[in-house]
Amino acid sequence: MKPVFVVNIALLLVATVLLMVNVSPAFTGGSITSLENSDATCAYSEDGVLATLPKEQCCYEAVKQYACEKDDGGYRCYASPESSRFLVLDQDMMTLCQKRGYDVG
C-alpha cells in the first residue's frame, strides 16, 4: 500500500472526527431524542414511598437539589442528606439531564 494512501486515510479519519465534533448538536440530538424516548426513570421518594416523577419535570427537580450521589446503580438527589424527601434517577435519566445542559450529577 502506498504511504501517501495510508496518510490520506489517516487524514480523512481526523477530518471526520473534527467534522463530527462541530456538528455535535445535530449528532447528539439523535442520542438525546433516543434518551427522551427511552424508559429512563425518575421517582420521588417520601418516607420510603416512591412515586413516579414524569421525565418532563425530572431534570428541573433534580437541578434544584443540593447534591446527586450515586446510589445502587442510579442517583439519589436531595436537598439535605438527612431528608426523607429525595429524587431517584436512573443512569439514563441522569445522562439525559446532563445532555440537556443541566448542572447535575
Partner: peptide
C-alpha cells in the same frame, strides 16, 4: 493522491480553527 492530501490538510486546518 497528493492533491487529495492537500485538500484534506486544508479541510483539517479549517475544521481545527472552527473547533
Amino acid at each position: 493522491s497528493w492533491k487529495t492530501t492537500k485538500v484534506l490538510l486544508i479541510l483539517i486546518l479549517v475544521l481545527s480553527l472552527v473547533t
